[in-house]
């Protein structure tokens, strides 16, 4: 058999792009991210500009997705809202990974009472769904995007901690880890040099799933007024404003909802595709 001499990155992309889930998910995610990035320099209309004369217009060539009850262009609001959804969900994932993975690795490396205590601590956090955390944080500090990030981020910590602990426990029994221990390396060094790099694929895949869930959670919090506050557009807030206009301007609710569904679908497909590409063994087990 001819050895595969392609560089790892090139090898990854050739396999990834041949995977249908990854390809579709990647395209959708890339479009949403680009839309958010472009909104920093350009939107078809100013999202803060009110135009009462042109309110509640149905989709047209001028306003692709129509206008809202203040005459604002819904397409422009979707573009700017994407920034918010991505930022909140992404930072929440970073919090989850940044705290959860070290906690999980630490628990697996030390074992015994510390492992038990850390995992029970996880159970306590797990008893607070993001929505309840957000309710408490809002009751104390008032609503806002930062509080949404904290609430979703806290929810993500035990998810990543459990995942990292499970993966690390399995890795600690492997021969190459034993070899590293025989070579005199400490637990912390082994974790940093061998355990974490070997679980990176798993964390990346879970990261995309948590990112997708974070988009829905952020929209939910904004919808009930606990997340991003006006006048900054957010998909959840747009749905909230659309609620009383449903009977005469259904496009106001349909468009932001579709934006959420397509983004989440794209991220889920990307996660599925990544799992297939990065961990073919897991993928076979799953199907």
């Amino acid at each position: 058999m001819t050895p595969d001499l392609a560089p790892p990155a090139q090898h990854f992309w050739s396999r990834a792009l041949a995977n249908r889930s990854f390809f579709v998910g990647f395209i959708i995610t890339a479009v949403v991210v680009m839309m958010a990035a472009v909104s920093y320099v350009w939107t078809p209309f100013d999202v803060t500009e009110l135009n009462i004369a042109g309110k509640l217009k149905a989709p047209s060539t001028l306003h692709w997705f129509g206008t809202d009850h203040f005459g604002r262009d819904i397409f422009s609001m979707i573009m700017v809202g994407a920034r918010n959804s991505i930022a909140v969900a992404l930072v929440a994932v970073i919090i989850g990974i940044g705290i959860g993975v070290p906690v999980g690795c630490w628990a697996a490396a030390r074992g015994g009472f510390l492992d038990e205590a850390l995992m029970r601590g996880n159970d306590i956090i797990f008893a607070f769904p993001a929505l309840l955390s957000a309710v408490m944080i809002t009751a104390v500090f008032g609503p806002g995007a930062i509080n949404a990030i904290i609430a979703i981020g806290i929810f993500n910590i035990p998810v990543f901690a459990r995942l990292a602990r499970g993966a690390a426990l399995a890795l600690w029994t492997r021969e190459f880890i034993l070899a590293a221990r025989v070579a005199g390396k400490g637990r912390a060094l082994i974790t940093a040099e061998h355990i974490v790099p070997n679980m990176a694929n798993l964390i990346i895949v879970q990261g995309t799933v948590a990112f997708a869930l974070g988009i829905i959670q952020e929209a939910g919090l904004a919808y009930v007024g606990l997340g991003t506050q006006p006048p900054f557009p957010s998909w959840g807030k747009m749905l909230n404003e659309a609620q009383t206009m449903m009977s005469f301007a259904p496009h106001m609710a349909i468009v932001p909802g579709l934006a959420i569904v397509i983004t989440v679908l794209g991220l889920n497909l990307l996660g599925d595709g990544l799992r297939d590409v990065l961990d073919p063994h897991l993928s076979r087990e799953r199907t």
């Binding site: 997708a212 829905i216 929209a219 939910g220 919808y223 749905l239 659309a242 609620q243 449903m246 009977s247 259904p250 609710a253 349909i254 932001p256 909802g257 959420i260 569904v261 397509i262 989440v264 679908l265 889920n268 497909l269």
Partner: peptide
């Protein structure tokens, strides 16, 4: 089911209100 996972329940609720109630 892949599509269903991506649908936020409060958006589905709004659509149900529009179709079934309005």
């Amino acid at each position: 089911s892949q599509l269903g996972i991506a649908v936020p329940n409060f958006w589905l609720a709004l659509l149900l209100v529009y179709v079934m109630a309005i």
